[in-house]
C-alpha cells in the first residue's frame, strides 16, 4: 500500500473509493432485489412494492422450485456438463500446453502448431457448419454436444503455455538428469508449480460451462434437456400475447409469476457465486504472476 501523500492524493483516493463503491452497488443491488422478490408474496411483486427487502415474507417460490421437474432436470444437466466439461477441458489444456511450451529445438513444428491453434481463435466455422458437424458426429441432444465442441479452450492453453515457459528451465533439466520422462515432469513438476494459473483456468472453465446457454438451445432437441442457463433464458423472455389462444388464459397467472422466476434465478446463480470467492484469490495472483515474470 502506498502511504498517504499530499491533499490531492487523498482527495483522489476518496473520490476513487466513492466511485468504486457506487460501481459495486450498481452490480449488487439488482441481485439483492431479485433475492428480495424471491422471498415476497407474488401480489406484492406484481404491484411493484418490493425494493430491497422482502414484502410479506414467504418461502412459497422455493417450495415451488423443489417440485418443478424441469428446473431440477436442467440443474442436473448443468452439473453433469460442468463436471464432464471441467475434466475434459483441464486434461486437454494441460496436455496441449505442455508440449507447446517447449522450445523450437525440442519440438520443431512448435511455432506452426501454436499458430494453428491461434487460427481457431480468429476464425471459426460459424453456426451452421458447427451444427452440421455435431449432427453428423451423432452427438446431438446429448451432453457431449455441450462439452466436446469446446473441449480445447485455446485461450486457456495460451495462458497456461506462457506460465509453463516462465518456470525455471533448470528444474526440467535436473529432472531429466535424474531420469524423469516428459510425463513425470509434466505431472510431478509443471502442474503442481502452476497451481495459480490452473486455478484461474478452472474458474474460467466452470463459469464458462455454467453460463453458456446458446449451445444448449441449438444442440438439444427437447426443452427437458436444456442446461440450466438455457432454461433460465427461456424463463425471462416475454410471452407472446399476440394471437394467444383463449384456452391459454389460465396459464397467464403462472407466466406472470415473477417471484418463482426470481427464486429460480437465485438458485441458478448460487453455486457459481459460492465458487467464485474461493478461486478468486488465485485468479488475481495467477494472471499477474503469469505475465509479470515474462
Amino acid at each position: 500500500m502506498v502511504l498517504s501523500g499530499g491533499v490531492g492524493t487523498r482527495i483522489f483516493r476518496v473520490c476513487n473509493h466513492i466511485f468504486l463503491i457506487a460501481l459495486a452497488l450498481l452490480c449488487i443491488l439488482p441481485l439483492v432485489q431479485v433475492l428480495a422478490m424471491s422471498f415476497s408474496a407474488s401480489s406484492a411483486v406484481a404491484a411493484g412494492l418490493v425494493r430491497l427487502w422482502p414484502v410479506d415474507f414467504t418461502l412459497k417460490s422455493y417450495v415451488y422450485i423443489l417440485k418443478n421437474a424441469q428446473f431440477l432436470g436442467s440443474f442436473g444437466v448443468t452439473l453433469q456438463r460442468v463436471a464432464l466439461g471441467f475434466l475434459i477441458n483441464m486434461v486437454l489444456v494441460v496436455l496441449t500446453a505442455y508440449p507447446l511450451s517447449k522450445g523450437v529445438q525440442a519440438f520443431r513444428g512448435r511455432t506452426l502448431m501454436v499458430w494453428l491453434f491461434v487460427f481457431t481463435i480468429l476464425f471459426q466455422g460459424g453456426l451452421i457448419p458447427s451444427y452440421m458437424t455435431i449432427r453428423m458426429t451423432g452427438i446431438m441432444d446429448s451432453v457431449w454436444a455441450l462439452v466436446l465442441p469446446g473441449a480445447v479452450q485455446v485461450f486457456n492453453v495460451i495462458l497456461l503455455l506462457n506460465f509453463f515457459r516462465n518456470l525455471p528451465k533448470e528444474l526440467e533439466e535436473s529432472a531429466f538428469i535424474d531420469g524423469a520422462g516428459h510425463w513425470t515432469i509434466m505431472s510431478r513438476i509443471f502442474v503442481p508449480l502452476s497451481l495459480p494459473a490452473m486455478a484461474t483456468i478452472m474458474l474460467f472453465t466452470i463459469v464458462g460451462h455454467w453460463n453458456s446457454w446458446f449451445d444448449g438451445l441449438i444442440y438439444m432437441n427437447k426443452p427437458e434437456h436444456y442446461p440450466l442457463a438455457t432454461y433460465l433464458q427461456t424463463l425471462i423472455i416475454q410471452m407472446d400475447f399476440k394471437n394467444m389462444r383463449t384456452e391459454d388464459a389460465y396459464l397467464l397467472a403462472e407466466i406472470s409469476n415473477r417471484t418463482s422466476k426470481a427464486a429460480q434465478i437465485i438458485i441458478g446463480s448460487l453455486p457459481i457465486l459460492v465458487v467464485y470467492p474461493f478461486l478468486q484469490r488465485f485468479f488475481v495472483k495467477g494472471i499477474v504472476l503469469g505475465s509479470v515474470k515474462e
Binding site: N221, K222, P223, M239, D240
Partner: peptide, 8 residues
Amino acid sequence: WTAEAGDA
C-alpha cells in the same frame, strides 16, 4: 426436436 415457443 421440440423447443420453447418463447415470444414467437
